[in-house]
Amino acid sequence: MTVIWGLDLHEIRFSKFKSANMFNKAYHLRRTKMIVYQLAMILCVCSESVGTAAFSDYLDQQSYIQGQHPGVKIHNNSFIGAFSYNIFVGIAVAFIFGAAFFFDLFWPERHECKHVRISWKISAVVVTIMMLSSALTITCIGALHNAVVTGTDPETAQTYRLEFTKKPSYTYHDNPKVIAAVVLAWPGWVFCVVSTIILWKSQNHDDQYGPKSKYGGGLEDGSIADKEANANADGRRSPESTMA
């Protein structure tokens, strides 16, 4: 048995991904966490991925046109900076809430010191604020900014754009990849907020009562099993009572 930082690596197995395990009621807010953490990760990473595709297109366009036409310059630093930051934030969100997802999936009853638990909370708040700032930034850049071409007239600049294979628009809000990145960023931020709230509530509950839910605690002490047994017994007796 390999144990690292108090975590039994034997617990990492595919059976943990079964819905019966992921969405069981034994642990407090487990089903909610399994859903909202994944939504936060997926939406933010999708925004980052689509933004990366647009980012790559504009870099390739800049390299091609400036290489083929000396003296012509494409100024798109605001876009490159905004979407570079979005890439970083998407990775940060996936790292924090992805880690929270897998730790809760594999080791729901793990013991963590006070400093680690505070770090979870702070990290969730930080990446949520970062995601908000990224969503605002790419929204403003995508909606209000354009790539500026100098060294030639606007008509010739459009001709140069059409020479390139990918042909991304100089006007960012006309680029569907930019629109998709912005659209995905906002629900991603919303689920970051929800995930942060759930993480805080879950950890506060764990600190006070432990990781088990009321249902899980009842299963552990046998009270739930006794109630179910009594209910089954009543169900078996009811036909006899009716006949009597």
Rank of each mutant, 00 (worst) to 15 (best):
V178Q: 02
D226N: 12
P154K: 05
R117C: 07
G90I: 13
W189T: 14
V194K: 03
I197Y: 12
I80H: 09
K214A: 14
F191I: 05
S84H: 04
V183P: 05
T159D: 04
S213W: 11
H115L: 14
F101N: 03
R161M: 06
I129K: 01
D104I: 09
L132R: 02
L219P: 00
L105G: 13
V190T: 11
K227M: 13
Q158R: 13
I87N: 04
I141V: 15
F103R: 15
G217V: 00
E220N: 08
A124Q: 09
A135D: 01
A100P: 03
W107I: 02
S134C: 08
T139K: 00
K212M: 09
I91E: 01
K114R: 15
W200D: 06
D206C: 06
S134W: 00
S202R: 10
S119R: 07
A92H: 05
A135R: 01
G142S: 00
P108K: 01
G216V: 03
V125C: 11
D104M: 08
V194D: 03
V182H: 00
S84L: 08
F106D: 04
Y85F: 15
V190S: 10
S134A: 15
A124I: 10
L132V: 12
D221C: 00
E109Q: 08
A82D: 01
S123D: 13
I80P: 04
G210K: 00
E109R: 06
I197H: 07
C140S: 11
F83P: 00
D226H: 13
S134M: 02
L219C: 01
G188Y: 07
Q203W: 07
